[in-house]
Design a protein around this nucleic acid. Structure first.
Length: 458
RNA sequence: GUGGUUGUAGCUCAGUUGGUUAGAGCGCUGGUUUGUGGUACCAGAGGUCGCCGGUUCGAACCCGGUCUUCCACCCCA
């Protein structure tokens, strides 16, 4: 059997892990800096926790876990014979791999509400799974890095989260990211004004495709979904929203004047935009995008999406928004939450494409000790012990170099692993506590004491 | 879930209109040279041509299915 891994999953080599750790550490650092604390939740949840939270499409993409034991025993014969997969699934599967980190977090908040001090700011960096078909920047197992605040309706949280995005992208030297914002209330307002409340999802999904299929394509899709022609004519101004955030907000105000909820959305957006610009961003930019409709399923207020720099062909590298009712589903009402997510794997691809990983991420062993025999190896181990306790990463080549060929092998090992120095203890009569250290780069050798050896690395 | 694409030695790929023992480079192993590596040279090992089935006297090459890769749609990080 040829070894392989399932579709949409990946192995990570030492260098790749180093780079991923670099991104993760950066994100973690800023999460902590903003006052978020880490939690972790199980990789799989009860199906009922996840199902129905992400829309019909989402349910299809959730990996279901087969029950243990003789799981078909409990199945209804009728479902089996009629091959009704959907009904059968609920009978033979009671667990599922988490699809995102937000819903499990909502479950966590409700379950542990008595131990939580609100507002609760948590961050979570864990893999999630989606039974999607892989393509560029899309995997079936990938990491999300989420920061959420629950228990406060203050819009200052949104302002903070925009700052957080900016801080992380600044640290990563990733210039040109655009934090796009919209508000679910604005979308509701638009639907209200044009009398298409019942078609809200179809309407926003179509609108979301504006930059992809153009105004005509959007109109066509809206018509196909049964949205009236005169309604489409009314939203015409949306198709060519131009200008600054302020200008866009003004034109929205005239469009949504008759909608209370729409006006509220505009006010919220205005508050966030005003405060963010007063605080200023370092590298990212904030933009209003009324066509943004992401995560519609549980978002109720602000919606965020971060698009990668223009010169990179990558979709969104982050997203988020405010959800007022998510904990309500699990029995805790009136706890509003807002959060953002960083797509680790996509950020990785973007940094790779732009060559933005620092050289130092590939750090390896500082020094390799050659192994010329048992006595020498023991002497080496003693020196290594000292070095390690001084914070120097050192290792001994495990096999003895009994001939020239094998010596070469040890050198090659050091070279391939990028180890900058090797130490040679060749003399079996090791008495004088001196070591020959060789610089792999220059080939220079020098005789030093253990004290000086340690100094070289400090 | 829909449409297309890819799959040949460890890796990157050749392989002509289906025809006898399937090739290259890199890597690997052994050796020579370099007298503690990164050079050069010599030799060698390694492939059920993704898998299953079909067409054919004969298939890596044609057909079907399946898995995998990548891409687009759907949707999304």
């Amino acid at each position: 059997m040829k070894p392989s891994i399932p579709k949409g999953t990946r192995d990570f080599s030492p260098t790749q892990v180093a780079k991923r750790t670099y991104i993760m550490d950066t994100i973690k650092h800023h999460f902590s800096c903003f006052g978020f604390q880490a939690i972790e939740t199980p990789s799989f949840e009860k199906s009922e926790t996840l199902m129905g939270k992400y829309g019909e499409e989402g349910d299809r993409l959730i990996f279901k876990i087969l029950n243990s034991g003789d799981y078909l025993k409990k199945a209804t014969d009728a479902f089996l014979t009629s091959k009704d997969s959907q009904k059968l699934t609920t009978q033979i599967s009671e667990k599922a791999l988490r699809y995102d980190l937000t819903v499990p977090f909502a479950r966590y908040v409700v379950q542990h509400q008595n131990d939580i001090t609100f507002p609760f700011k948590r961050f979570q960096i864990q893999p999630v799974w989606r039974a999607d078909r892989p393509q560029k920047g899309r995997f079936r197992e990938f990491y999300q890095c989420d920061a959420d605040v629950v228990g406060s309706t203050s819009l200052l949280q949104e302002v903070e989260l925009v700052q957080l995005y900016d801080s992380v992208f600044s640290s990563l030297q990733l210039k040109g990211c655009v934090i796009k914002m919209n508000n679910r209330k604005i979308l509701s307002g638009i639907a209200q004004v044009i009398g298409a409340q019942d078609k809200l999802i179809d309407f926003t999904v179509a609108l979301d495709k504006l930059d992809k299929i153009g105004a005509d394509g959007v109109k066509k899709e809206m018509l196909e979904k049964g949205i009236a022609q005169d309604a489409i004519t009314k939203v015409q101004p949306l198709f060519n929203m131009q200008g600054t955030a302020k200008e866009q907000l003004e034109s929205l105000k005239s469009l949504l004047a008759s909608s209370q909820i729409g006006m509220q959305g505009i006010q919220e957006l205005e508050f966030i935009v005003t405060n963010v610009s007063a605080l200023a961003l370092k590298t990212a930019s904030l933009a209003i995008d009324v066509t943004l409709a992401r995560g519609l399923n549980y978002y109720t207020g602000a919606i965020f999406e971060v698009s990668a720099p223009n010169d990179v062909s990558m979709g969104s590298i982050g997203g988020g928004g405010r959800y007022d009712d998510l904990t309500g589903i699990f029995g805790l009402k009136d706890v509003s939450g807002v959060g953002i997510s960083f797509g680790l794997d996509r950020i990785y691809l973007v940094l790779e494409e732009l060559g933005l990983f620092p050289e130092t991420t590939a750090a390896s062993t500082d020094v390799l000790f050659f192994n010329f025999g048992e006595t020498q190896a023991l002497a080496a181990m003693k020196a290594i012990k000292k070095l390690r306790s001084n914070g120097v990463s050192a290792e001994l080549y495990p096999d003895i170099a009994s001939n020239q060929k094998k010596e070469r092998k040890q050198l090659t090992y050091a070279e391939r692993k990028g180890i900058p120095y090797v130490v040679l203890i060749k003399d079996p009569q090791i008495q004088d506590n001196t070591y020959t250290i060789k610089n792999m780069h220059t080939g220079d050798k020098q005789l030093v004491s253990l004290e000086n050896l340690i100094k070289i690395f400090n």
